[in-house]
C-alpha cells in the first residue's frame, strides 16, 4: 500500500514553474530517493510535501488523506517528519531539549497543567524525556544530551536533527540532503542509520540527495526530476541506464 501519493503536483512562483505535473507513489516501508540536477525542483517539491510551500495545483495524499496546502505542523502531527538541508537546530538549547521538541505533537499538557503541576503533566514530562533519550540513543549521541546544540561538531548536529525528527514518532521521514557536509566515514554511518530507521522502527524514508553513491546504495526506488518534471522512475540499476537521466545530468552530446 502506498503511504504517500503525489498527483500532478505543480508549484509556480509568479511566472516560474518550479514543479510541474509531478506524480509518484511511495510504498510503505521502503526507502526512496528523489534526485535531479541542481535547480531541478527537488527542494521545491520537498517543501510542498512538508507544507512549507503551498502548491499551486494537484493533490498530495498521505495515508490516503489530503495534505495539499496543509500547514506544516498539521502534517507533522499526521506522522510525516522532516529534516532541513542546512541544519535548523535550536542552537541555544541543550541537545535533549532539542529532541524533546519532537514530542510536542504527541503530548498535550497545557497552561493549567503547567501552572498546577498536575500529576498527569509530571508523568507526561517524564515520558517526553524518556522517548527523547531513546531517540538520542538510537542515533548514538546520548552521551551528549546536556551539551548546547551549538557546541557540537557538525556531524553530531546532524544526528540531533535526525533524533529530533524521530521523536515526532513519524511513519514517514523526509530527509533533505542528509549527507551534505558529512565525511566519507559519516556517510557510511548514515547509510546504516537509514536502513535501521526502516528496519527497526518500520519508518518509510524519502530522501532528497546529491550524493549519487549514497542514493544508489540505499534506495530501493528512485524518482528523477528535471525542470520540475519527472523524467524517470525505477530501481538504481534502471535509472542509472536510462538515457534521459544521463542526458539530464551530463547534457546532450550535440549540445553546445
Amino acid at each position: 500500500m502506498s503511504i504517500l501519493e503525489v498527483q500532478k503536483l505543480t508549484l509556480r512562483f509568479g511566472g516560474l514553474t518550479a514543479v510541474s505535473n509531478l506524480s509518484f507513489e511511495l510504498e510503505e516501508n521502503t526507502i526512496m530517493s528523489l534526485i535531479g540536477p541542481n535547480g531541478a525542483g527537488k527542494t521545491s517539491a520537498f517543501n510542498c510535501l512538508t507544507g512549507f510551500y503551498k502548491g499551486s495545483e494537484g493533490e498530495i495524499l498521505f495515508k490516503g488523506q489530503s495534505i495539499f496546502r496543509q500547514k506544516p505542523h498539521k502534517i507533522t502531527k499526521l506522522g510525516m517528519a522532516r529534516t532541513f538541508q542546512n541544519l535548523r537546530l535550536f542552537k541555544d538549547m541543550t541537545v535533549l531539549e532539542n529532541v524533546m521538541s519532537g514530542m510536542h505533537s504527541r503530548t498535550k499538557a497545557g497552561v493549567f497543567g503547567a501552572i498546577l503541576r498536575l500529576p498527569s503533566q509530571v508523568h507526561e514530562e517524564q515520558r517526553i524525556r524518556q522517548v527523547s533519550k531513546e531517540c538520542l540513543d538510537f542515533v548514538g549521541i546520548l552521551d551528549k544530551e546536556s551539551r548546547l546544540a551549538r557546541n557540537l561538531a557538525y556531524g553530531d548536529q546532524r544526528r540531533v536533527e535526525w533524533a529530533r525528527a524521530l521523536a515526532t514518532q513519524p511513519q514517514l521521514l523526509l530527509l533533505d540532503e542528509p549527507a551534505a557536509g558529512l565525511n566519507q566515514d559519516e556517510k557510511e554511518q548514515l547509510v546504516g542509520l537509514i536502513r535501521r530507521i526502516r528496519k527497526d522502527l518500520g519508518i518509510t524514508v524519502l530522501l532528497i540527495e546529491h550524493d549519487m553513491g549514497l542514493v544508489m546504495k540505499v534506495s530501493e526506488k528512485i524518482v528523477v526530476i528535471d525542470y520540475g518534471q519527472k523524467i524517470a522512475e525505477g530501481t538504481a540499476e534502471e535509472v542509472k541506464n536510462n538515457p534521459r537521466v544521463i542526458e539530464a545530468y551530463l547534457g546532450k552530446e550535440d549540445e553546445e
Partner: peptide
C-alpha cells in the same frame, strides 16, 4: 520554521 516542522502550531 524548525518549530513548526516539529509539529508546533506557532
Amino acid at each position: 520554521d524548525a518549530a513548526e516542522a516539529m509539529g508546533i502550531d506557532p
